[in-house]
Design a protein around this nucleic acid. Sequence first.
RNA 1: GGCGCUAUCGUCUAAUGGUUAGGACGAAUGGUUUUCAGCCAUUAAAUCAGGGUUCGAUUCCCUGUAGCGCUACCA
Length: 505
Amino acid sequence: MAHTHPEIRTRFAPSPTGFVHIGSLRTALFAFLFARKNSGKLILRIEDTDQNRFVEGAVENLLKVMQHLGINFDEGFYLDDQGKVQEKGEKGPYLQSQRLELYKKYALELVEKGSAYYCFCDEQRLEEVRKEQIALKKPPMYDRLCRKLTPEEVREKLNEAKAQGKNPVIRQAIPEGGSTLVPDLVYGEMTYEHRILDDQVILKSDGFPTYHLAVVVDDHFMEISHVIRGEEWIPSTPKHILLYQALGWAPPEFAHVPLILNPDKSKLSKRQGDVAVEDFLSKGYLKEALINFVAFLGWNPKTDQEIFSLQELIEQFDLKKINKSAAIFDLAKLDWLNSLYIRNKPLRETVALALPFWELLGINTESYPKEYLSEILTLEKDRLKKLSEIGERTKYFFAQPEYEKELLIWKKADANDASHKLQKLYEFFTNLPEGRFQKTSLEEELKKFIGQNGFDNGSVLWPLRTCLTGMAASPGPFEVAATLFIGLGKTEILKRIKIGIDKLA
RNA sequence: GGCGCUAUCGUCUAAUGGUUAGGACGAAUGGUUUUCAGCCAUUAAAUCAGGGUUCGAUUCCCUGUAGCGCUACCA
């Protein structure tokens, strides 16, 4: 099993469904990490053999997402400067629908060799056979009726079909007895009895191959050394190996990766929340967090380190450290990772990323000084789970807050007290020179004010904070006031205190 | 139904033929404090079950159970 390969070549081979599934991302990431770690190549191949499924713009979207995440392909497709999809690489085309002749050639070769055969059964018959088998509690499989046809009968039926404008399918002829060993870098060796393997269709009547033929032909000609794909492909791997053998080709190595599950342990699906990487991105999850999180689904470095950059992942990635059991997608842990990355990201970058979320709330960020925005973000970034929360949490920096007067009353005080303190604060701020509005000096002055008057911290700071923010939970009053001063000036602070006083009257 | 895979705190997981079964998220409690977040400290929380093998098994083997996957002219 320990083959040596002249070059490590692996691939990511999604269907163009229009969005990038979180599970696809994980598979792609593993393939990417494996290729980079071993100085190999990562190939992108688009598996569009199901014409019904093709979604316009899917490849472009895929490339955009992957590029944004930092997962780049050595062969296959890329986005040019204009953002247009371009193909590159020596082993193309990399779009399966453009390789139809090749699949046909090898399907026919397999027929020639007796490892595949024409099947003329129509859908009704197949349906009937299936029903009957299920009724008899037998595994539903093709009954191999057409496999028994003589060469003459085949020729006859071929002509007949042609006259009617119909195309037969080609099925793989699974050997009668014996079994096939499936070696896997993650799961070890698995054996499949041939008698339970179905004579799968490999070439459809529309001339397109099914996955099973296409994947074998392509992986062979694209010289893929390692196939990294989801666990759901394990049961069809023996069929693929049989195809390799029939064609006289050496199969690649397989590494199946465990499934990602919903919290209820079903296969991760759209029904139970977001599965599209784009959705996470648009909700304000950082790419770093997404990558870090997804890498830890089914893999870990066997150390206590939890925080990994893409570069560190490359350095430490090892197929042997992939575990066999499926992993549940835990949003709470993603949130934690995301908040951590938000906290640690350089402020400039975070501001740029936050802009769209303010705009979403109708805030025209262009009309405020950059300094103001970055001050606001400094206050709030440690409190964010995702960037999308920024708008709602900081809206009081852009418009006067709305709130009930009860909010102004500290838990250990009453309305009269709150009103009194706000009046005192109004005087205090009126007399405070503009040069003392920086956070530290403001804190100094306010504490002095509180001390000199013999007030409770809370009885002063609570109403101040709430009348400035209109929120039960927010950053502290010193930094809020200092930031407000930068953006909207002293008059705004006084105005908000006045509003508070009026409410309490 | 058939075939296959998997099985350690609620979740992601570490470890070992002998450990107080470790870490992280989440939860709870306390501290800091004007609120929230953060930070610090603390706590609760797991080897699916039954048989073997063994001086000793969570670890190796078998059986069972459960979960999941596959069982298309989808991928």
